[in-house]
Design a protein around this nucleic acid. Structure first.
Lengths: 343, 343
DNA sequence: TTGTACGCGTTATCAC
DNA sequence: GTGATAACGCGTACAA
């Protein structure tokens, strides 16, 4: 293992001072062009690599963005990350990623690590059971920007990137009503999370605005897993009268629910129409194809990261923005198109 | 923004030297228990956080692992990352993640960044068009461990984590033959990548071992995208005689190919049986459910990360292992079960 | 345009 | 069990 080359070694090599070498390597304007070139050449020749810690230690920042995500292996979250990585990389930032695996405990530990790692900023989607966000207080106190996305929390000092979940759910539910559904069930996730409470609101408002009754029994709160979809289907089959529409807050769960219903002999959409949420690729594979809400994960990642890097690079002014709402649309497919309305 | 507290501040606070404070905070055994406790208390009270750069600078390592992945938003890759993150986190390492987006150019840039960031080790799945791995030479020269997984390259100084792609493809093809297929097409990816050449080999060997002819025209090389699956289907429909089996090197592509075939009136599996690769969740959603090879992404991530952290923490001896092969099995579902063989 | 000298916060080394 | 000191490699105020 060779010894690391430092700017001092280069300085000796070219006969200039370390200062000039440092400046040259950082492309400082006040260095003679020829000097610069010579320094570049020797540096390359000697196999020099800059030491980011030393630089970080000196400059007091890291060019690193921390990302805390509930779970990495979900289509939505990995799309978000892909968008973030692209933007961050282009802006010269590295991404340190950790997953809370849905528990607040790990989220707190991760936040602490990020804090000690001196990340320049934080991108967070809250865990399932995060009831408070006081573990981010150290960041707020130090003025380190925290941006929440998808699963957000309110805080004066942070920006949230979201879609209008109320409106999206409203659209989805209204669509079912327009298809003739009069007895709609809503399968949702953990109602502590803003995303699901908002979708529930949209569901409720759509019913009310169309003079349909809202019954608590029509809301099934689950963990939105594969099994949850199957269990929800069983529950729905037992309901009397049987529902004629289902709005599920997550595609994956919706698809599994559909499978279970189909196996029980239910015709979709004619007996029961189904609408999901996210526009996961599986929506175009399941039969019938699933009507859903287009939730632009990749774009959300881009926006969140851009928002942060712009702020860090002082390209955008102080944190005035409190919430950025992205567009999300209803994508109508066969799972919700009742025959009588089809041509 | 408050001033950062250092061990000097704590030293003043407790009346001990910075040395003792440093030792206490690192739980050094040669420090009086009471002293330690006092230092802990004051540190917490003053809101101290350790400065990882300074520590890194001094100790010459970062507790950071670099990950270079072709693309983040794929089910397989994100599962791998989830496994890596879990293991790395438990071992006290952070993950810096970047995606090559399938181009060698970005992979080179990412490798350089990782190198300058002084990662302690690297986990890499090669990009589509990486024809050489000389951009990792700096790591090898410095003795920084590089572990390849899934899309690997041979190098004396690196470990590869793989599955036996030849054998897996052999199993898949043999299964089709056992179902009565005699004219099987193989849809594959970029044949520069080991994964796909190996799968092609397994396909070929299975044919030969069963006295079936191997024709180059039966191999369709694509980019394995959604459209590729559809195009491949069109190509297959034009073949005369029409194939009775398809082995696709990727589930996502297989599913889209199936959709196109079904739309053209082909019965699956009876007209054409289909086998995929990866065991992506969509295999259990498509109808009929797709027979596939179980490719344990999460486990692969765990193994790769554990291999690296064990090495870094000197828990495992020098890099003797050259290749770790994970188990992968054929999962038989309806898409390949020809009726005449069903009970 | 270039150089001197110091400090960023930690830890290894040696001494007591 | 504790402390003084130097060093890790870089960036920059100040000086020339």
């Amino acid at each position: 293992m060779d010894k690391e080359i430092t700017i001092y070694d280069i300085a000796k090599g070219v006969g200039f001072s370390p200062t000039t070498v440092s400046r040259a390597l950082n492309d400082h304007p006040a260095v003679n062009k020829k000097t610069k070139q010579r320094i570049y050449d020797i540096a390359a020749q000697m196999g020099y690599r800059s030491n980011l810690f030393a630089s970080n230690l000196r400059r007091q920042h890291t060019n690193t963005i921390g990302v805390i995500v509930p779970i990495l292996n979900s289509n939505f979250q990995s799309s978000v990350m892909a968008g973030m990585e692209k933007v961050a990389n282009e802006a010269g930032y590295n991404l340190i990623i950790s997953q809370s695996l849905g528990t607040m405990e790990k989220e707190i530990a991760n936040a602490k690590t990020m804090y000690n790692s001196r990340v320049d900023g934080l991108l967070v989607s809250l865990s399932h059971d995060s009831e408070s966000i006081e573990h981010f207080e150290p960041f707020f106190k130090k003025g380190i920007p925290v941006i929440f996305y998808d699963r957000v929390a309110e805080h004066k000092q942070s920006t949230s990137i979201v879609i209008d979940n109320v409106q999206a759910a409203y659209k989805a539910t209204t669509h079912l009503i327009e298809q003739g559904c009069r007895n709609i069930v809503h399968i949702t996730g953990n109602l502590k999370i803003n995303v699901y409470t908002d979708r529930l609101k949209g569901f409720k408002y759509a019913l009310v605005d169309n003079d349909l009754p809202y019954k608590k029994a029509s809301v099934i709160a689950t963990d939105l897993t594969e099994e949850a979809g199957i269990k929800a289907a069983e529950q729905i089959l037992k309901m009397d009268p049987r529902p004629d529409g289902i709005f599920v807050a997550n595609d994956f769960c919706a698809v599994n629910c559909m499978k279970a219903l189909k196996q029980a002999g239910i015709a979709i959409p004619d007996d029961i129409a189904v609408v999901g949420f996210n526009n996961d690729p599986i929506t175009r594979v399941v039969e019938p194809n699933l009507t859903t809400i287009d939730y632009p994960g990749y774009e959300m990642g881009e926006v969140a990261a851009r928002n942060l890097t712009n702020y860090l690079d002082a390209l955008s002014d102080v944190n005035i923005t409190n919430t950025v709402t992205l567009r999300s649309d209803l994508i109508v497919r066969e799972s919700s198109l009742k025959k009588k309305l089809k041509k």
